[in-house]
Simulated assay, not measured.
Amino acid sequence: MSSKAKRFWTPGPVIVGAGPSGLAAAACLKERGVPSLIIEKESCLASLWKLKIYDHLQLHLPKKFCQLPYVPFPREYPAYPSGQQFITYMEAYANHFEIEPLLGQEVQWAKYDAAMGRWRVKTHEYEFMCRWLIVATGENEVPVLPKIAGISEFRGRLLHTSTYKNGVEFRASKVLVVGCGNSGMEISFDLCKNGAQVSLVVRDKVHILPKKILGRSSFAISVWLLKWFPVDVVDRFLLFCSRLVLGDTKQIGIQRPKMGPLQWKNSVGKTPVLDDGAFAKIKSGEIKVVPGIQKFTAKGAEFVNRTVKEFDSIILATGYRSNVSSWLKEASLFNQKNNNNPQDSYPKNWKGKNGVYSVGFARQGVLGISMDAHKVADDIASQWNSETRHLWLDS
Rank of each mutant, 00 (worst) to 15 (best):
Q84N: 13
Q84I: 07
T88S: 13
E91Y: 08
E91K: 11
A94Q: 04
A94P: 02
A94I: 02
H96R: 10
H96T: 01
E98F: 02
P101C: 04
P101L: 02
L102G: 02
L103V: 00
L103Q: 05
G104V: 03
G104M: 03
G104F: 05
Q108N: 07
A110L: 00
A110Y: 04
Y112I: 03
Y112W: 11
D113Y: 03
A115C: 11
A115Q: 14
A115L: 11
M116D: 13
G117Y: 01
R118H: 13
R118G: 06
W119F: 01
W119A: 05
W119K: 09
R120E: 15
V121M: 10
T123C: 05
H124E: 14
Y126F: 12
E127L: 08
F128A: 04
C130Q: 04
C130G: 08
C130F: 02
R131H: 13
R131E: 12
W132D: 09
T137I: 04
E139K: 12
V142Y: 05
L145F: 15
K147M: 12
S152G: 12
R155W: 09
G156V: 05
R157S: 12
H160G: 00
H160C: 08
T163N: 08
T163A: 13
G167Y: 04
V168G: 03
F170Q: 05
F170V: 03
A172P: 02
A172E: 14
V175M: 13
V175L: 07
L176N: 10
L176D: 08
G179Q: 04
C180S: 15
M185H: 15
E186R: 08
E186A: 00
E186K: 05
